[in-house]
Design a protein around this nucleic acid. Sequence first.
DNA 1: CCTATATTCAACCGTATGGTTGAATATCAT
DNA 2: ATGATATTCAACCATACGGTTGAATATAGG
Lengths: 113, 113
Amino acid sequence: MVEYHLDHVFRALSDPTRRAILGRLAEGEATVGRLAKPFPVSFAAVSKHIGVLERAGLVTREARGRERVCRINPAGLTDVRAWIDFHERFWTERLDALDALVAETPGEPDRTR
Amino acid sequence: MVEYHLDHVFRALSDPTRRAILGRLAEGEATVGRLAKPFPVSFAAVSKHIGVLERAGLVTREARGRERVCRINPAGLTDVRAWIDFHERFWTERLDALDALVAETPGEPDRTR
DNA sequence: CCTATATTCAACCGTATGGTTGAATATCAT
DNA sequence: ATGATATTCAACCATACGGTTGAATATAGG
């Protein structure tokens, strides 16, 4: 469940317009119209982008009259964060281990064979 | 420079096969052939995936004879990590601030105006 | 009720993506 | 040199993506 969810979150974050929307939303809630204004694309395009963010669990959209208020969902990043955390730590540890190995080996480490 | 790079890294991470390749690579270096074996897709497809990871700066590929040895590039995650770090903290802070506001306001917070 | 506003929906378009297959390239082993 | 192995390249295919435009829906306000 979590794994397949990562697809959507990473995918959602891979678009600069969507990251910009998140950046704007980090300053506070906003309607779709207000969100769309600064972007050089159509209203409908922004609406779609918000849909992607919503499906990824990064944003919530709530009806208020004829407007839709968008807010950031802080929990949306936790899975991604966990993935990054784990892998970055793991990679760094391996790198450190390799460094240590090289350091304590006087001659040729000969990792190739 | 960093911003457009994020596109590539997030994009690369959005595919489960590519994340699995990274997972395998976290255990240690491997040739393209060894990497491709467990996956239900063709050799060429895996080679392409590795290309995507390489272009995103997450993996390095080095020729060793007729084989190509792939390794994880630990530095590849730092930009993404920084982005997540910043946003997660920011979002959480806003959420905390909102909680505090709601807590100390007896009646209607009236966040709408 | 009528009209303007806010938003989505639907259909469409060009391009990118992930996949395949078969040919091309380079290296190893005999 | 010859043949097998490892990998990429090139062409192709189906599907998904980001974009547009115009119609549809719903609410606000005179």
